[in-house]
Amino acid sequence: MFVLSTAGERRLQRLLYAAGFCGALFFLLAPVIFMLLTALSQRPDFLGNNYVMTTRHFREILTTPSLHFVRYCINSLAISIASAGITTIIASGGAYVATRFPFKGRTAVLLMILSLSMFPQICIAGYLYRIIAAAGMVNTWLGLILPYIAWIMPLTFWILISYFSQIPQELDRAAFIDGCSPLRTLVTIVFPLAAPGLFSTLLLAFIFTFNEFMFALILTNDHAARTVPVGIALFQGLHGELPWGVIMAASVITTLPVILMALLFQRHIMQGLTRGAIKG
């Protein structure tokens, strides 16, 4: 934190802060506000024209069956919740033993997991498609859930390791002496203590899978499993011209929960993000 000495410096800083704050606010929010305005506008070319408000784009996107938007939402939610939940559970077991049992090759395993998260997605996508196709799972929920679990496991694992290593080992050693198995110790002793960390991890895993694009683009072909980001990206107008109002209404509906989550759990998300990045 800057500690400022002279009154002049202090005034200058206050001015700079005000300017910076307004600039940052505009930069961060203008696109989102524009999205909302377009979704609620009769026409997309309202700048410099009269603004006529309407909710018809929202009604259209939610009630037109041929747009499949509601189905995309269900797909996205089901796939993300399942992947984030399963990954967090599996990763917590792995991260727990990785922090508690020193074993041969531990560093090698940890480094391998870390390096997996660095692989560019395009290096995986081609053969991932072949594997999923060979298993007959293209365009199914499971066909996306399994790759997503694999894809976010390294990050999840890494964040959880940083949380678990902060819990004093004496606590679970005491449980061992009382005859608890590692699994029981994990569930009854470590989980309650690491609850905020688990929650942050779950949130991050959800946001990452919910936003994922390339795998979802390659592994789905229609509304049976297509997720919202791909659905919105591939939106074509019925009559040629892009229905911007409808696309933005869909974007608003999709973004709303994500934004709410970001605002409500800001501290958790920031903590998880910095841990994932800095420990990595």
């Binding site: 940052a24 606010l25 961060l28 929010l29 696109p31 989102v32 524009f34 999205m35 377009t38 997309p44 070319d45 309202f46 700048l47 410099g48 946001i207 919910f210 936003n211 694009f213 919202v228 980001p229 791909v230 919105i232 990206a233 939106f235 911007w244 696309i247 933005m248 974007s251 999709t254 973004t255 994500v258 934004i259 989550m261 970001a262 605002l263 800001q266 998300i269 920031m270």
Partner: peptide, 26 residues
């Protein structure tokens, strides 16, 4: 809190919004 908004929005949706922002005529 607000800083998380652009980060949390799916890149695909951000792409659509920016596509509209860059629209030549309006």
């Amino acid at each position: 809190a607000l800083v998380l908004i652009p980060w949390a929005i799916p890149a695909a949706i951000a792409g659509r919004v920016w596509e509209l922002i860059y629209s030549y005529n309006w």
